[in-house]
Design a protein around this nucleic acid. Sequence first.
DNA 1: AACCGTCACAACCGCATGCGA
DNA 2: CTCGCATGCGGTTGTGACGGT
Length: 319
Amino acid sequence: MVRTPSCDKSGLRKGTWTPEEDRKLFAYVTRYGSWNWRQLPRFAGLARCGKSCRLRWMNYLRPNLKRGNFTPQEEECIIRMHQKLGNRWSAIAAELPGRTDNEIKNHWHTTLKKRSEQNTHTNEEVRASKSKNKESRQGRDSVPNKNGVTVTLPSTSQTSDNSSASVSPVSSSCSVFSSTTSDHCSAASMDNLVFEDDFGFLDSNIEPMNESFWTELNLDDISYSAASEIVSGDTSGAIQSTDASVHESCAMSPHGSTSDNDFGGFHDAYAEATLDNFWPQAYVADMSHVPSELLVSTVVESEYFTPIYDDLWGQSHFY
DNA sequence: AACCGTCACAACCGCATGCGA
DNA sequence: CTCGCATGCGGTTGTGACGGT
């Protein structure tokens, strides 16, 4: 389940993310947003490629992710959507709030695919049986088997009922899930700042985040605990904190995973903080560590992170 | 206890797409 | 139109966990 950490030839780390790396990435993105995935690891003090950071964020660290087992409703929804859309995992994921395309894809390949195929076979068998049954009914309701023993065929209605129930025990309705799902707290929503094109001088001028950054970050303010009751393993755990949408959107999922490198340690370490002091007020994103000449204002309308550029490039205030 | 096969899932890789210059 | 870059997407791989023999 966990890859052994390794380095590629460019010195960038590959493989399993450590809790420390998770902490850095989470702290950086929640504070500054993902203004540029490729450049971000340098500023966040991570020896990772941007792609890896983005993936880790999107599939694992991003707020509002739901961990744990898929509910029958979710599975039903995936099966239906897959029948409709095929392997368009991101489109399917859009129907399941808190689930990532990767997660859905994995679940499909490990569990649902077999079930679906099994169901297909069952349906085919039933269909074959039906037609056979029909033929036999034209003459008689019972047919002798190869041993000459008369076998009574099951009634058509019974067969049909069984097959229809085999897909899922739940209604095919998926209305419990919003069709307008969006990643309220996604990295994309925080793409407020981008670099201009020449990065050559970065190598000489820019220091990665030093240790003081992490001590100054005041990670105690980062909260997950309140979210633990917000997003639960099953979809019945509706979002309960309703005072502000920003709270909902930034609620950190409880971590149900048991893997060694999971976010649980980080989560536990800061579990005492409350959701209310996570985004207690207008958030000031201090971009001073990024050279001002690199920052370009691309004010992206975001439902939850609305940047206001008070002093043009220096600071962004996120609400 | 040791071995082996399977499962589950995090993470990687390559290609596609969108966008600005 | 073309090129380069950033990001998104889907397929695939690697590895630990786990159960069976």
